[in-house]
Amino acid sequence: MKAYLQTFTRYRHLLMDLVARDLKVKYRRSALGFLWSILNPILMALVIAVVFSQMFKFKQPYYASYYLTGALIFNFMSEATSNSLTSVISGASLIKKVYLPKYIFPLQKTVFAFVNMLFSLVAVIVMMLIDGVPFHWTMLLFPIPMIYVFVFTVGLSLLLATLNVFFRDVGHLYSVFITAWMYLTPLIYPESLLTDTRLGSFTLMSIVQFNPMYYYVTYFRRVVMDGVIPGLEVNLICAACSLFFLVLGVWAFKRKQDKFILYV
C-alpha cells in the first residue's frame, strides 16, 4: 500500500502534465475557446428548454437550469468514461517502451473531464442567474455530489479501459448503452415523471432506482437549485455506489494490467 502511494506521488507530475496538455489542446483553438465552453452549454440548454418546455409542455420550473445542472453531472461521467475506454490502447506506444503505472491513462481522462466540469459550472451559475433561480447557501455543498460522481467514474473508467483492451467492440456497445443510460436519468424530463409514468403496475422509478447517476444528479440539483440537503439515506446510497464501483474497477484493472502489453 505504501509502495503504491509512493509510485502515485512520483507520477503525479506526469498526470498533471498530461491533463494540462489535454486542456491546452481543447482551449487553444481560439482565444474564445474558454468563452465558447461556457456559452455552448448555455445555448444548448436554451434550445432544449424551448423544445421540451414549450413543445412538450414539461411542467418544470426553471427548466433550462434544471436541464443544465443534470447535464453537467451526467456529461462529466459520459465524457470521462468514453475517453477512458480507449485510453490504455492510445497509450500503447508508451506502455510498450517504458514502465509506467497504467492507471495513469484512465485517470488522466477522468481528471480532464472533471476540470471541464468545473469550468462548465460557470455556465450553470450564469444560467441560474438568467432564469432567476433563488440562490441558497447549500449551493456551497456542490463539491459533495461531484466527489461522489468522481469516485464512481474513476471506478467505471478503470473497468471499461480494462475490458476494451481485450474486447475492442466494447466501445460500440458502450455508446449505445450510454444513450439508454441518459434516458434513464432525469435530465430532459422532470423528476416527477418517474413516479407519474406507469408501466403496468410499475412506475419508471422502479427501474431508475437502480441507476447510480439518478442519485448523483438529483443530489446536485437539491443542493444547487432547491436549497435542500439530502438526508443520510441518500448519502449512504451515493457513497456505497461510488465505493462499490471504485473497488470493482481497481480490482479488475489490477488483475489484468500485466496482460495489457500483450494485447495493445
Binding site: H13, L14, D17, K97, V98
Partner: peptide
C-alpha cells in the same frame, strides 16, 4: 525514442520524457 511524442518539439519532449521517467518538472 521510447516515451517520445514525435509531434512535439525537442523542448516539450525532454520535459515529457523526464516526467515519464518519474522526475519533476
Amino acid at each position: 525514442g521510447a516515451g517520445f511524442d514525435m509531434d512535439l518539439t525537442a523542448r516539450e519532449n525532454v520535459l515529457l520524457n523526464g516526467l515519464v521517467l518519474g522526475y519533476t518538472k
